[in-house]
Design a protein around this nucleic acid. Structure first.
Length: 468
RNA sequence: GGUCCCUUCGUCUAUCGGUUAGGACACCAGAUUUUCAUUCUGGGAAGAGGGGUUCGACUCCCCUAGGGACUGCCA
């Protein structure tokens, strides 16, 4: 677009709740675009609503972004701290005749609003053209918008969007308690922070016109706007709690890897040909806000799971072991630190079947449970005299195994079946049950590997003696 | 109600006037198999509807329908 020297984007969440998945994607797109253009990505905490903003929520946002790997290039700017600057701009607007004091009561306002909704014109305070200027009486300061003409937003995603100025009401700039409002604060802060590209949710498209008017009134250059469609739930409705999760912290708790969520989010509302799985570097090289899809996208759990599974396969086993340990701890059955290398080995054998870290943890349970344990009903039934005799002989063979490796164990099992003149099916399920106790386990050779010789043989002994 | 936005397989998307409308997830079938899963092969599946513009529209314009956002001294 223009020849601006350096691109500056920002993510501006309000700490009145947790960091939503939609917000996380907005932040990601801001980051990707800034990186793509070789610019900077900033974070601004919009805490002008003093009643609902909390430090805890600020921390949640920071933690969430950190976990996702979408971190700003500078410390966050806190909007409320800029209140003096905001007020100064309002004074300037007043001086320029582009704002006015409004003394309407809440009742009068409610009435005007009702009228506006019933088909009347946009809200315009009767004080707009009144001379009264008593700074001591309770009042708000409103923007004095133009009555005619139109305001055009050249949105990078939506294209040209025009608004009739007469439809735009005179928004409040300064509340009666002297605190600036959102629409004023964003404009001032974006200007002060040198933001060149405002990339934010679709829900702000209407505000863009009002904000454009403020830029104009201050004779400030307008940034480029890009309004992203919102993320909806699987049913097409606005994403909410009943859809499973909305806070990024919840996605972490559900066992998603940050790089998987990043990849999924990037693909949600944006595409690059047939590419589905790509690295951060590729995303940066390929991403352009102008390519973002105009329509809202729905969150699709199965696809997220699939991508997550892919990244679990790619992930380093020691890292996965550490994450799985955390899950064990959360579940109230922590594992000793020195067991971690062994856990990593187990993970290597079972991870192909895991779509989430929670599932990965489940898949390791068979190997980490402590002996002796009761056998499940199904396995008990399988253990007939005949099968036990088979397993007993197999135990001898395994005990004599010189090399405890997967291919070797596989061969031993095969040879054993052949030598006995039976199919693997004759004892395979029973052996699995004996080794695992009935919880999910991988193929026989892998299970034996995961347990190690001593543990595997001990478990067989347990089962065989238990049922003597 | 008003203003604004959106509309390609079930879902995410590719296509930037000329394609048998491609891919991925999901689904179905088959193969492999000692459970579950994985893996492999194959399959069904789309331009909301109606008008234009054009030699030719998914692609450009208009209308209708449906969905969404906003309509606060919230952000």
């Amino acid at each position: 677009m223009t020849e601006r020297s350096a691109v500056v984007t920002r993510f501006a969440p309000s700490p009145t709740g947790s960091l939503h998945i939609g917000g996380a994607r907005t932040a990601l797109f801001n980051l990707l675009y800034a990186r793509h253009m070789g610019g900077n990505f900033l974070l601004r905490i919009e805490d002008t609503d003093r009643e609902r903003s909390t430090d805890a929520n600020v921390q949640i946002i920071l933690d969430g972004l950190g976990w996702l790997g979408v971190t700003p290039d500078a410390p966050p700017v806190f909007q409320a701290a800029q209140a003096d600057r905001h007020r100064a701009v309002v004074q300037e607007l007043l001086a320029r005749g582009r704002a006015y004091r409004c003394y309407m009561t809440v009742e009068e306002l409610a009435e005007a609003r009702e009228k506006a909704r019933a088909g009347g014109p946009a809200i315009r305070s009767p004080w707009r053209d009144r001379a009264s200027n008593d700074p001591d009486a309770p009042h708000v300061i409103r923007f004095k918008g133009p009555l005619d003409g139109e305001t055009v937003i050249d949105d990078l995603i939506k294209g040209e969007v025009s608004f009739q100025n007469k439809e735009l009401d005179d928004l409040v700039l300064l509340r009666s308690d002297g605190m600036p409002t959102y629409n004023l604060a964003v404009v001032v802060d974006d200007h002060d922070m040198g933001v060149t590209h405002v990339i934010r949710g679709d829900d702000h498209l209407n505000n863009a016109a009002r904000q454009a008017l403020i830029y104009e009134a201050m004779d400030w250059p307008r940034p480029a706007f890009a309004h992203l469609p919102l993320i909806h739930g699987p049913d097409g409705a606005k994403l909410s709690k009943r859809h499973g999760a909305q806070a990024v912290g919840e996605f972490a708790d559900m066992g998603y890897l940050p790089e998987a969520l990043r990849n999924y989010l990037a693909r949600l509302g944006w595409g690059h040909g047939d590419d589905e799985i790509f690295s951060d570097a590729e995303a940066i090289a390929w991403f352009d806000v102008a390519d973002v899809v105009k329509a809202p996208a729905r969150l699709d759990w199965p696809k997220l799971n699939h991508i997550n599974q892919h990244y679990i396969q790619q992930a380093d086993n020691d890292r996965l072991a550490e994450l799985v340990c955390e899950i064990y701890a959360q579940r109230g059955s922590p594992i000793d630190k020195d067991q971690r290398p062994k856990l990593a080995g187990i993970i290597a054998l079972v991870k192909e079947a895991a779509q989430t870290l929670l599932q990965l943890a489940d898949l390791t349970v068979f190997a980490t449970r402590s002996r002796p344990f009761a056998l499940d009903e199904k396995t008990s039934k399988l253990l007939t005299e005949e099968t036990k005799a088979l397993l007993s002989r197999l135990r001898t063979r395994l005990d004599a195994e010189t090399e405890w490796s997967r291919p070797e164990l596989e061969r031993t099992i095969r040879d054993f079946a052949q030598g006995e003149g039976v199919g693997i099916g004759k004892f395979g399920q029973a052996l699995r049950g004996v080794l695992s106790g009935g919880v999910p386990a991988p193929d026989l050779a892998s299970s034996l590997m995961a347990l190690g010789r001593a543990e595997a043989l001990a478990r067989m002994d347990d089962a065989l003696s238990l049922l003597q």
